[in-house]
Write a protein that binds this DNA or RNA. Structure first.
Length: 920
RNA sequence: GGGUCGUUAGCUCAGUUGGUUAGAGCGCCACGUUGACAUCGUGGAGGUCACAAGUUCGAGUCUUGUACGACCCA
């Protein structure tokens, strides 16, 4: 018997219980686990996660980033790829060390009180206990990563990769120790790479200092500087050799104020005659540019500021720092020195000056340029390879405007300072023999060295650790076991898509491409997808410090993970920032919340009507048994599938390795994908098909009801498959209720739909339903205009040319029930006092509305419509009368325009006739 | 200082190689609980596509300039 089943679904969607039901089932059944062996017979599709800092707490940026990855990986998993999303965390050298140092500071201790070994142990312990929590938080938003492969940049396995990379680069002659001015964070006590020293625009001061000539105290030269405290370390004044103002002074000496040191005036083209006074003081130990000048002129390099940012005579600086200044912090020293300069009459003036000051990207302290010994990687050869893969089409970046940024940076690449003077990280694998009698060079080794290879005496390891990014840049293959030739490495390298934010294009993305190309001779991925930033309504980036953040877990609790995911994906234009209001979560997440509620209600109703009896497969139903509505929804599903595919794909270059120009910019349009799927399930399946179907479904039994059940279930099944990557929980819960879902199967690994008809074009039968929709909308419009009681039934006549009339004949009941109208068909318009509308293809709607029709209103409406169309017709006629248009535009277009003109003309005529009958 | 991008409905954004009457979500207005859904339904209002010039039969789309805004690099 076919009485409707008891509805098993609760009336409101319970996100919490659904999420806690399905996530464990997915993981228990290994739905997310990739298999290297299977990858031999299926296309692998690999995404490596941008590893969050091991101590990080989930924020909206992670939410966005990981949702995108999850959508892509779930899509490819359904599409039959061997999908691997590889998760993990980054040990985050400086950041993590800072956290633990802060804890120590609260106890009044420093890391030096503990000593290196115990401190590192303490950090490791801290990471063990509190680290990696973010990975659990990723599970809460539905991330389908392969947790069995969770990696960590500081694990023994990945540490092995790091050593291998360092040693190999050394063997390749690309690692060297350099003595130069680098960026130094006095607070963190370490050097930083160029990328880690971020520029901040600041309004500072430009100090003009007067240095008196040694041999002629009546003469002086004025230099301009933003950092007067470095004058103690000045070794020269440089002027441009072309600058006529100073020609006579070149070669003479000036006396530094305060410490009385004599320094020469030199000529160097580095000096810009137009900046400041045209004369600059040269402090080689405390400015990278001055360092270059100093090297060119073989100047001494006195160091007057130490590693903690304290002014004192550090090196080659005897007699330069007066006792009164020694021991002052660099900021205090600036104040004191300016005062002294003023007292000596050496301070000419102070101007406001807008410039960019570098700050530590971890603690925001102003970076101090510092002369020191550091390990560097010579990047030019690596960068060239990374440029080749982009130019050769093995790599693309979306949005493509970032490709220019990538190229620009790589073309101007500078050597990478990879050593850090902190303790938390991979120690530089270099050992020194301190035996003065032994001539052993530093030993660079893959394994720990315990004795000198020459004299067998004791050795000591380099104190420095490697930049965190030196492990991150190996991530796409270190996580797969490199340098060992593991099955995973063979199966899953190179990967496919890298999803991240543009901020780390240089830090991480470009470097991964370089390392992949260098060590494995292949770009680690063929696509870089750079998504936008999550911002608040003032377009300010969400951040903890600004207090404008949204906790994704709050959103999950309030509306569910799917609502969070949907909101972000639906709003995610390519490379576009996502705006959310931290003060109004209801409004911000309304799109996702509303969509989930709607989907749940669609499913609840639909499933209750479909029931639980087995369904015959769609393929077993003879086409002539399908109604126009059935044909229509099946066509719409085809179209939705094609639209989703077009928005998402292609997943990889068609030839497997190189993007063609036609492919290169395509796909990864997540918002278009969301819109195509949404339109299908909501605007087509629910709004029209389900409504049109109600009479058939309420029938108690019969063949037609079976057809309706089958088509309905098929259409919904298709919708759920299309939606699963975006809203995995709610779709899984609904899909499990469909009668034809096999026991033990998961939507999460069901097949991605394929369009039945390849072209997605509407079939002729479906066209009848389009006419029916037109008629329904027209009747509703008339009803609304005349304020007809929504419950009341009206008479409506459709006047249609014979062939369309024949199509409409079968739709009369459907139109009637959807528009609450007693619908009749006619070949001729009877005229009379009625509301009349022109539909498409010459179909007319006549609604008599006895006694209610307002003739003036009808006339007005017709007139407005006629005027609009007439204006457009005239423009079109003008175009068609233009000989150039007719001769130059594509013939097919001209033909189409002619046909349109004819249609519009007939329509205008019809309206004029109507107006006349209305007495205008 | 160098570079990149953006400016389309009240807000946030789509609009693929130039070619019907420029779309969506949210918001707004009117009506409404007809056997899934008021986190909803139905109907509707709202845009000289920043400005100016140019190319073209034809420009939201291509070129140049201007204004404003954002980001990246030095």
């Amino acid at each position: 018997m076919t009485a409707p089943e008891t509805n098993p679904l609760p009336t409101t969607y319970d996100a919490g219980s659904t999420e806690s039901t399905w996530y464990p089932r997915w993981t228990e059944h290994g739905v997310f686990t990739a298999d290297a062996e299977r990858a031999a017979t299926r296309e692998p599709f690999v995404i490596v996660i941008p590893p969050p800092n091991v101590t990080a707490v989930l924020h909206m940026g992670h939410g966005l980033n990981n949702t995108v990855q999850d959508v892509l990986i779930r899509w490819r998993r359904m599409a039959g790829d061997e999908a691997l999303w590889l998760p993990g965390t980054d040990h985050a050298g400086i950041a993590t060390q800072n956290v633990v140092e802060k804890q120590l500071a609260a106890q009044g201790k420093t890391r030096f009180d503990l000593g290196r070994g115990p401190f590192v142990e303490k950090v490791a312990e801290f990471v063990d206990h509190t680290g990696g929590e973010i990975l659990n938080q990723l599970k809460a938003i539905g991330s389908s990563a392969d947790w069995s492969r969770t990696a960590y940049t500081f694990s023994p396995a990945l540490s092995k990769s790091v050593r291998e990379a360092f040693v190999r680069l050394h063997e390749d002659g690309l690692v060297y120790k350099g003595h130069r001015v680098i960026h130094w964070c006095p607070r963190c006590g370490t050097s930083l790479s160029d990328e880690e020293a971020e520029f901040t625009d600041t309004t500072g001061k430009l100090y003009h200092l007067k240095y008196t000539l040694a041999d002629d105290p009546t003469q002086s030269i004025t230099v301009a500087t933003t950092r007067p405290e470095t004058m103690l370390g000045d070794v020269a004044v440089a002027v441009n050799p072309e600058d006529e103002r100073y020609l006579a002074m070149i070669g003479q000496e000036v006396v530094l104020p305060i410490n009385g040191v004599r320094i020469p005036i030199i000529a160097d083209t580095y000096t810009d005659a137009a900046f400041g006074t045209g004369a600059v003081k040269i402090t080689p130990a405390h400015d990278a540019n001055d360092f270059e000048v100093g090297k060119r002129h073989q100047l001494t390099m006195p160091v007057v500021i130490d590693a903690e940012g304290i002014v004192r005579e550090v090196e080659d600086a005897a007699g330069r720092v007066p006792a009164t200044l020694s021991g002052l912090d660099r900021a205090e020293a600036r104040t004191a020195i300016v005062k002294l300069l003023e007292a000596e009459g050496a301070l000419v003036k102070i101007e406001p000056h807008a410039h960019a000051v570098r700050h530590c990207y971890r603690c925001d302290t102003v970076v101090e340029p510092r002369l020191s010994d550091q390990w560097f990687v010579r990047m030019r050869p690596l960068a060239d390879k990374a440029l080749d893969v982009l130019r050769g089409g093995q790599l693309r970046i979306l949005p493509d405007r970032w490709e220019a940024v990538y190229v620009n940076w790589l073309e101007g690449i500078r050597d990478w300072n990879i050593s850090r003077q902190i303790w938390w990280g991979h120690r530089v694998p270099v050992w020194y023999c301190d035996n003065p009698a032994c001539s052993q060079e530093p030993i660079v080794s893959r394994t720990d060295v315990t004795a000198c290879t020459s004299c067998h005496g004791p050795v000591r390891q380099d104190e420095d650790v490697l930049d965190t990014w030196f492990s991150s840049w190996l991530w796409p293959f270190s996580t797969l076991g490199w340098p060992d030739a593991t099955p995973d490495l063979k199966a899953f390298y190179p990967g496919d898509v890298l999803v991240t934010a543009p901020e780390i294009l240089f830090f991480w993305v470009s470097r991964m491409v370089m390392s992949g190309c260098w060590f494995l001779d292949q770009t680690p991925f063929h696509t870089v997808y750079l998504h936008g930033t999550v911002r608040d309504m003032q377009h300010k980036k969400m951040s903890k410090s600004l207090g404008n953040g949204i906790d994704p877990l709050d959103v999950v609790k309030l509306y569910g993970a799917d609502a969070l995911r949907w909101t972000m994906v639906a709003g995610l234009g390519l490379g576009v920032d996502v705006m959310l209001d931290p003060n109004d979560l209801d409004k911000s997440f309304a799109p996702g919340r509303n969509f989930c509620t709607k989907l749940w209600n669609i499913g609840r109703f639909l499933l209750s009507r479909v029931g639980t009896e087995p369904l015959q497969p769609l393929s077993s139903i003879a086409p002539e048994r399908l109604t126009a509505a059935d044909q229509w929804i099946l066509d719409r599903l085809d179209q939705a599938v094609l639209d989703c595919d077009a928005a998402l794909g292609p997943p990889r270059p068609a030839n497997g390795h190189t993007w063609t120009d036609a492919e290169r910019g395509r796909g990864l349009r997540l918002s278009e994908y969301a819109e195509a799927a949404r339109r299908f399930v909501w605007n087509e399946l629910a709004d029209w098909y389900l409504e049109a179907l109600k009479p058939r479904l309420y029938a108690t039994e019969g063949e037609d009801r079976e057809v309706a059940r089958t088509v309905l279930a098929h259409a919904f099944d298709g919708a759920l498959r299309l939606l699963q990557p975006m809203v995995p929980f709610i779709t899984e819960a609904l899909w499990q209720q469909l009668p034809n879902t096999p026991a033990g199967a998961f939507l999460a690994q069901a097949a991605w739909p394929v369009a039945r008809r390849g072209d997605g074009a509407a079939s002729a039968e479906a066209q009848a339903f389009e006419y029916a929709r037109d008629a329904v909308q027209a009747i509703r419009s008339v009803r609304s205009e005349y304020n007809v009681n929504p419950g009341a039934w009206v008479d409506a006549m459709l006047v249609a040319p014979a062939p369309i009339g024949a199509l409409l004949d079968a739709q009369v009941a459907t139109i009637g029930s959807l528009a609450r109208a007693r619908v009749t068909l006619a070949a001729e318009n009877p005229g009379g006092a009625s509301a009349q509308l022109l539909l498409r293809d010459g179909v007319e709607l006549v609604v008599p509305l006895a006694g209610m029709v307002d003739l003036e209103k009808e006339k007005q409406r017709l007139q407005v419509e006629l005027d609009q169309l007439d204006a457009q017709l005239q423009a079109l006629d003008g175009r068609l009368a233009n000989e150039k248009f007719v001769s130059k535009a594509p013939p097919a277009l001209v033909e189409a325009e002619r046909a349109k003109a004819g249609e519009w003309r007939a329509r205008c005529e019809l309206m004029r006739t109507k107006l006349r009958t209305l007495g205008a």
